[in-house]
Design a protein around this nucleic acid. Structure first.
Lengths: 146, 146
DNA sequence: CTATATGATTGTATCATACAACTATTGAGT
DNA sequence: ACTCAATAGTTGTATGATACAATCATATAG
């Protein structure tokens, strides 16, 4: 019944959390810092944005986004575009190099997922992708409420 | 095709990782430290074990398990059982209080998952649970190889 | 008996995060 | 126009979960 699925999801989420924590401290980083990947992705898909807007969209603290952005900026993957009407803020826009780097990083990640799921059927992959997205969407809503 | 599922999983895993990191730093802790939950679970389902064995099973560094176990021990959720034939090591076994605490924590987590997935069908939950477990299993194998 | 291996602990570093304090700029009310 | 509150962003500090390296105590092999 329902209870069983709940238990399973609850447990497997704990397992996955643990694994993710472990991966995060373990992996030698390439150029693109893992955490900043989604920031770069956000800018690349939704266009230039300021720190505040990015933080809201990603549901992260402004200070966190500020640091991630500074790091991407320093690597030349994004650059500040000043706003004439407000000298406090700017928009970050992705650079050519940033787009290249993101694509490359994505490709590496995809290959890893592919390898990881090498014994999965296409149907399983498709289902998992859809449900995982649905899960994240649910979490996002839950988060924004309380 | 396959590419699309891969991309989706790759992206949504990044999103989930980020969220998990955020939850980890955000949440006020109850009695049971989040990370130690799986350690307690392992002992509760597989019986008494030493630090080394637990670390292997959980694929964590021995030092990490040692600290988590010390924390659970200090809270009275597990206790050391000396081995007469080897004074270096002991087995940790779960206490009554530990079992109670674990069950309670589990229950709270399940309720949260239930709330989170309130608009999911039973079929979706079941599928997600199964696929999530399969994913974790795949990761575990991948990890143990390289 | 000594040297090496083993189980566990402890010291230290790291990463991504949040919260709090701060800086610079803007805008509103008088 | 001046002051004071609001706002965008940065920087300081703390935290949790981890890994790796050094160490300690005990056990075992030669």
């Amino acid at each position: 019944m329902s209870e069983e699925s709940l238990s399973q999801i609850e447990l497997e989420m704990a397992v996955l959390s643990r694994r993710i924590a472990s991966v995060a401290r373990n992996k030698r980083e390439e150029n693109l810092v893992r955490a900043a990947y989604l920031l770069l992705f956000q800018i690349s898909t939704h266009g230039p944005a300021g720190v505040k807007g990015l933080a809201e969209e990603l549901q992260l603290d402004i200070s966190t986004v500020s640091r991630q952005a500074a790091s991407l900026d320093q690597k030349g993957y994004i650059k500040k575009v000043p706003l004439p009407q407000d000298k406090r803020s700017y928009l970050y826009e992705i650079t050519e190099e940033g787009r290249r780097e993101m694509t490359e990083y994505q490709q590496i990640r995809r290959e890893k997922v592919d390898e990881l799921l090498s014994d999965w059927t296409e149907e399983e992959r498709a289902q998992f992708g859809v449900l995982l997205k649905k899960f994240n969407d649910s979490v996002k809503v839950y988060w924004s409420k309380g």
